[in-house]
């Protein structure tokens, strides 16, 4: 028997919205420590990895490892029926062919029950090695979303270059070129909370090219976290990570475009 509950069901709806345009369906691997999901986009250029910890749930019980094969668009149709402040419970029998989703309003005046048919998905998992990155940038997630959206109107490939002073996003296209630089916030800044700052940890300067349409897809997770962390290495996938307090994180990996 697997069951878990979130006070803020809305968070789970945002999680599914963050992956459903990149990956059609996937396996939620549930074990005693939490839920993980991994999936690649159809062109195998991007990988999304979701890791939810049991500590982030108000209730969590997993007697035996359970794999829930889910079509995200179908799940999203059911989650759409959930109230913004509803509590979400998910339940599945060990060998069941469906999973139940229960939404309950705060005052329990409204309770909704949905049963989603599960799929058999044969999906190989990719091993993501622990990596020492050349540069790690933490910045406001809304700022990153805006940069990717606005620059993609000018070009389809963004060059991200990082020095210890700043991170620069550059594009070029038919109409011309442009770049946007974010300076590292002064560490002394006392005003504003940390989530508004741009922090750069630099091993050594690095520059890489990425397809903007994937980055724009990743920023669908902006609602999950006020900050986003970008990790870059030379000729390595970019890691775009949104951390959700004690619930866990969603990580997007994007293969670079390399000059042959």
């Amino acid at each position: 028997m697997f069951e878990c509950a979130l006070i803020q069901g809305e968070l789970f709806r945002k999680l599914i919205a963050s992956v459903q345009d990149l990956v059609q369906d996937g396996n939620f691997m549930c074990d005693a420590n939490g839920i993980s999901l991994q999936g690649m986009d159809s062109s195998h250029v991007a990988l999304v990895a979701l890791a939810l910890k049991k500590e982030g749930f108000v209730e969590y019980r997993c007697d035996r490892d359970v794999t829930l094969g889910i079509n995200f668009a179908n799940l999203a149709k059911m989650l759409k029926c959930m109230g913004a402040k509803d509590r979400l419970s998910i339940r599945a029998q060990d060998e069941g062919d469906s999973a139940s989703f229960v939404f309950e309003s705060e005052d329990s005046s409204r309770v909704s029950n949905f049963e989603l048919k599960l799929m058999q998905i044969d999906q190989e998992q990719l091993g993501v090695p622990e990596t020492q990155y050349k540069a790690v940038i933490r910045m406001p997630s809304s700022e990153f979303q805006r940069i990717c959206k606005d620059l993609s109107a000018i070009g389809d490939t963004v060059s991200i270059s990082v020095t210890k002073e700043a991170v620069k996003f550059s594009v070029g296209g038919d109409i011309g070129s442009g770049d946007m630089s974010l300076r590292q916030s002064e560490s002394g800044d006392v005003d504003g909370d940390d989530s508004e700052k741009v922090m750069i940890e630099l091993e050594e300067p690095v520059q890489q090219n990425f397809a903007l349409r994937y980055l724009n897809n990743f920023t669908k997770a902006t609602a999950l976290s006020k900050t986003v962390t970008l990790s870059l290495g030379t000729d390595m996938p970019l890691v775009t990570e949104y951390k959700m307090d004690n619930l866990g994180s969603i990580r997007y990996y994007l293969a670079p475009k390399i000059d042959e």
């Binding site: 690649m40 062109s43 195998h44 250029v45 991007a46 990988l47 190989e124 998992q125 990719l126 091993g127 993501v128 090695p129 490939t157 090219n209 397809a211 390595m236 996938p237 990996y253 994007l254 293969a255 670079p256 475009k257 390399i258 000059d259 042959e260």
Partner: peptide
């Protein structure tokens, strides 16, 4: 010539 790599180029299947 700029080529777009696939993610499997970097990560191995388990």
């Amino acid at each position: 010539r700029i080529i777009q790599n696939e993610i499997e180029t970097f990560f191995q299947f388990k």
